[in-house]
Design a protein around this nucleic acid. Structure first.
Lengths: 239, 239
DNA sequence: CGGTTGTTTGAACTGATTCAATCTGTGTGG
DNA sequence: CCACACAGATTGAATCAGTTCAAACAACCG
């Protein structure tokens, strides 16, 4: 097991943190509060251990590019991905160790800072509190939707829903109904609670139904409204 | 559809809010901050609409006794319960309307206050922020565990896990491995993503295996360690 | 080229759903 | 106190969605 950190750059004046954060999707008046704290830029490789379950999480993580996931293992060894973090999103520190592990879905560039540097600023600034409060509620909202997805939808709808959510969260062009699918079929299975074999069949199904077209990792949504209907995807929960 | 609010008591001097909160499980130094805000004591009846999905949530809710649930409906009309709130737990206000509805699982007594009275106090007190921060992280942790439950465990483990969690969260006596099951089989189905028919079979299974014994609504855990193993229940995620 | 990782396909199997019927307990009104 | 209604629990039979196991195929990379 090789830990996948490369390109760890110490805080340098060449790149201002506030600028990096803003450029990666954080509102600049929020990012400005963090201009002086020490940070690292880290690269995480897909499907390599990045943070193990049970480790302490005395750090903030912010996704500059790529996608991170939080995952848990059942005692039977089966893996479930419980949350995703896209560009501009992040993972807040905890006081206790966290039950979940963190991995990259694709090659991901992220920014980390120590909780002890981050938290005091957060506590001193009501504006920041409100901002992170809203992020937390959005994540809660997404968790609930995932629970509905796993608990109450059949396998086709589950996969379709994930694709719709991913398209929207990764900022799919409204003109160009297509995206590059970031997931392996095993990852889709780990998110939607299935086996990769069945995910494969579902993809083939969606293609046969004329809802998507696949060219390698590219997915073209050929009938977005119908796709949304099949997925029962109502994007309100993403705000 | 009859809204189930009774016993709505205006803020009276006869009962001090801080006292009520503390008595229902909130640490008293936390409860003390809320001694002066207006509140209502409300009673909610099981399986009756209490707050509809999509409604604004400009209120804090605190459970004095009983159990509340948050639920969502899939567009196919199937219902999924996404979270529970036991005695001493609560539901925080949102800026936007919430996608989920709220109902009582059993007859529940709760305390509500307006967000506009609550939030300013929260924002002014770092100690309160840290307290609610921890509650939020616990809820996140539970959500993730539920996702693992729905996505990666078979129906017996799902139900067993719910029973274990419920026993612990409702404060089952460590000497007396028994509790009064608060759920109908339909509610268990709505939590674990199954049909009530199958939940019934799972209960019968658990009993046949000698893991539990049922007398009406009472459940006696006859082999708690084995029950935990079957459920793959590791209570760490509850803190 | 060989190694690795991911995708695709088939056949057999099983767990869970669906639909429908019956049973049980509890509360209500006469 | 009985009759009735209603909600929830239980059971059976047929069906189907998704898993499991196993094998083949494709793409990529040093």
């Amino acid at each position: 097991m090789q830990v996948s950190r490369r390109l760890k750059i110490a805080n340098s004046n060449s790149e201002a943190l506030a600028g990096i954060l803003a450029e990666a999707g954080m509102p600049s008046h929020i990012a400005a509060y963090f201009k002086d704290i020490p940070y690292k830029v880290v690269q995480a490789d897909p499907r390599r251990p990045f943070r193990e379950p049970g480790a302490y999480r005395d750090e903030v993580i912010f996704v500059r590019s790529g996608i991170l996931c939080k995952y848990k293992m059942d005692s039977g060894g089966r893996r479930q991905i419980v949350a995703l973090r896209f560009r501009g999103e992040g993972i807040l520190p905890r006081e206790e160790s966290a039950q979940y592990g963190i991995q990259a879905i694709v090659k991901t560039e992220l920014i980390t800072a120590r909780a002890e540097d981050f938290t005091p600023i957060l506590e001193a600034q009501p504006e920041l509190q409100r901002y992170f409060w809203r992020l937390i509620q959005r994540n809660e909202s997404i968790s609930y939707e995932w629970l509905v997805n796993c608990g109450r939808r059949d396998s086709v709808a589950r996969v379709a829903h994930l694709l719709c959510e991913t398209a929207v969260r990764s900022g799919m062009d409204d003109e160009q109904y297509k995206m590059s699918n970031p997931f392996t079929q095993q990852q889709v299975a780990d998110i939607t609670g299935q086996t990769s074999v069945n995910v494969n069949r579902v993809f083939a199904d969606l293609e046969r139904q004329g809802l998507i077209e696949r060219k390698g990792r590219e997915i073209l949504f050929q009938d977005w409204p119908e796709m949304r209907r099949v997925a029962s995807f109502q994007p309100d929960y993403l705000e």
